[in-house]
């Protein structure tokens, strides 16, 4: 059995603070994994280690069988791993369409016409064709996040990482972003999602991972983790977030 992402015994610390303490994760192609856990448990750091926005102290990460480290071609690696951030991080000086075609143009050297075709298709997919010439500041948070998803998809990544994609949104805007993510999941995209949206996790995830203090406490199908958690820490966390 080969995995698209393998993380073995990952240790990561920021100064004296140990964030990941022997983290392991194997991700199959097409699998949707949702990571939940209290803040500071290392959920986001897991995502940021996969695409090497953070370097690890020890352990091994493999992407499609080859090891990722500082010596690897990180730029080429990152083109295959899309990431969506909590704060959207759209480029404020570029229009919506320019945001989406920027990386295809300068990283992949696609001709402009081709990049634009891809960009417009993706905008249609996230339902924002009419906003192609708008600047990010003219959009709602939910619209910005959908553009950010389209921007990541424009590089045709093999896997998408979502780092609390709805946490910065007003409650009434959460739905539209989750809908876009759900459609992406239905198309078979491999996804790792850090979120507090339990309904989404329940419906979309193949596997839910509950993390606390840098390690996996419990994992399994959403049904099992949510309905019959075996660990005390999982139980008390689920109890707290259900209010």
């Amino acid at each position: 059995m080969s995995y698209i992402v393998e993380m073995k015994e990952i240790y990561k610390s920021f100064g004296p603070v140990e964030v990941l303490k022997g983290f392991n994760l194997n991700l199959r192609e097409g699998e949707k994994v949702v990571i939940i856990g209290p803040s500071g448990s290392g959920k986001s750091t897991v995502l940021r280690c996969i695409n090497q926005l953070e370097s690890i102290q020890s352990g091994h990460i493999h992407f499609e069988g080859s090891e990722i480290n500082e010596k690897a071609n990180l730029c080429a690696l990152r083109t295959q791993i899309g990431m969506v951030f909590q704060r959207f991080n759209l480029f404020p000086h570029k229009t919506v369409l320019e945001n989406i075609i920027e990386a295809p143009l300068i990283v992949k050297n696609l001709p402009k016409a081709e990049a634009q075709t891809i960009g417009l298709e993706l905008l249609e997919k996230v339902g924002l064709s009419d906003k192609k010439d708008a600047y990010p500041r003219e959009l709602s948070g939910g619209q910005q996040q959908r553009v950010a998803i389209a921007r990541a998809l424009a590089m045709s990544p093999k896997i998408m990482l979502f780092d609390e994609p709805t946490s910065a949104l007003d409650p009434e805007l959460v739905g539209e972003v989750l809908l876009t993510m759900r459609e992406l999941a239905d198309e078979g995209m491999t996804m790792v999602v850090v979120t507090h949206e339990m309904a989404f996790a329940r419906e979309v995830a193949d596997r839910v991972i509950f993390m606390d203090q840098g390690v996996i406490v419990e994992e399994g199908p959403p049904q099992a983790v949510f309905e019959n958690p075996t660990q005390e820490r999982t139980k008390s966390f689920l109890k707290r977030i259900r209010h």
Binding site: L53, A76, R78, F85, A103, V107, A148
Partner: peptide, 8 residues
């Protein structure tokens, strides 16, 4: 980070 994550 966004630029890096896109492979720039």
């Amino acid at each position: 980070e966004a630029a890096m994550s896109l492979g720039m």
